[in-house]
Write a protein that binds this DNA or RNA. Structure first.
Lengths: 228, 228
DNA sequence: TCCTAATTATGACAATTGTCATTTATTTTT
DNA sequence: AAAAATAAATGACAATTGTCATAATTAGGA
């Protein structure tokens, strides 16, 4: 099994402040998992006793609404961590993390994380910053969901997906989502999402190649996302 | 000037874990402020160098959208604290805090807070939990804004306002908001909020006494908020 | 108090968005 | 490769929500 000291994860996020010794301790106790597309890493309401480090692959964080609809709150990819909020707050997990493709994930037991939090103030501060930044993003999302029309939110979401996942060798946004998942991200009916995507294509702002989406005119999208 | 050791604040939130010595230190360095209705305690984008303890009065936390509309993210009242997110994350303030009525507020300099965070792990953990809980609420709000119709969101908001502020001696929700502020909370046009409030009154679910709102049938509101 | 300004309320209409039905295309399974 | 299942696309229509105009009411200042 690979060693945390050499893991790409330690270049990212809060983990980059961990010492060699701490990483060795993680190595000794960690377990590596393969999560298949469609499976959950974490499930809303469950409690967890450790931190998940995403080595590779993409997943969606979702919340099931009282009306039974799925809302996608956030996308997560290699280099990100999951579960730290739940560890720190000692609350159950608030969101489902569902793999969008096969994933490689490491699980580090809660005890080791708490030890590092105690010993390494910089580590715990970075965890707090991570949560704090998420709160800031969430507040922005509330505002946009509440006040922007669906078309603007779609434009915003496409830009944000390219920002998060980058583009592949054909300049398409490098993530595969169903139209339903796009609809569940912006908070609209699947048919509406499909129609608005078609309109954007007709206007030459994006191109649709099967499920792949290519942004042709980023400025136009930015303008649409701001209501012009 | 009053002493933090005897302040009602210390019964609430993260502050309840502070020691007598810490509270004395706070007392020595704190400043008391009166914030008039309509004035800002904090302003979006500004940096702050301390923690605000709300002694008395109510305020709204808002975000200005790119389209110029105000979105109300959260309501805050006596016993709550403001600014800890910004202190911990070392980022500028993300929201405007605007007084809904005259307020009494204490300001405790950042240095004292950071000292307590370092010395008192329980205090810092409680701050994290506070932020973490806010994130959890924010995620729920995203989901509801995205997927629930305006009527449902209004019902939800009325219940939540009564939960937060309680009722006065006439059983009205104990906060005065304009129709525009209600609209900015649920994310709709002022006229729509007015119309839906009128409908709820016509249906006998609430009563409207000027700006005061009285919930007559909490169960009916709960059902509406869940789409029935 | 009266006057002015702001807020609340309501109507009429337009724009947006959702729902249902159906067709076409794509993916998965056999 | 064919069949079955799933997803995407589109039309028709209904429901929701927003905008603009205007009237009624309330609040705040001279």
């Amino acid at each position: 099994m690979s060693n945390c000291s050499h893991c790409i994860m330690k270049r990212f996020n809060a983990l980059k402040t961990l010492t060699h010794d701490e990483l060795e301790r993680f190595s000794d106790h960690k377990t590596s998992l393969i999560i298949k597309k469609g499976e959950n890493i974490m499930t809303e309401g469950n409690s967890i006793n450790g931190l998940y480090c995403i080595q590779d692959g993409k997943c969606k964080l979702t919340k099931l609404n009282t009306n039974g609809k799925e809302q996608i709150i956030k996308f997560v990819k290699g280099g990100d961590i999951l579960g730290h909020r739940s560890i720190l707050s000692e609350e159950p997990v608030g969101l489902n993390a569902t793999a969008l493709e096969d994933m490689r994930v490491c699980f580090i037991p809660k005890g080791d994380i708490l030890d590092s939090i105690k010993d390494n103030p910089q580590f715990s501060l970075n965890l707090i910053r991570n949560i704090s930044l998420q709160l800031s993003h969430a507040n922005t999302a509330i505002s946009q969901m509440a006040q922007k029309p669906v078309k603007d939110r779609l434009a915003e979401t496409l830009l944000s997906l390219e920002e998060i996942f980058g583009v592949d060798n054909e300049d398409c946004i490098d993530v595969i989502l169903t139209r339903e998942e796009i609809a569940n991200t912006i908070g609209t009916a699947t048919e509406s999402a499909i129609r608005l995507l078609s309109n954007l294509k007709k206007d030459g702002v994006i191109d649709l190649l099967g499920k792949k989406i290519k942004i042709l005119n980023k400025n136009a999208l930015k303008n649409i996302s701001e209501g012009y």
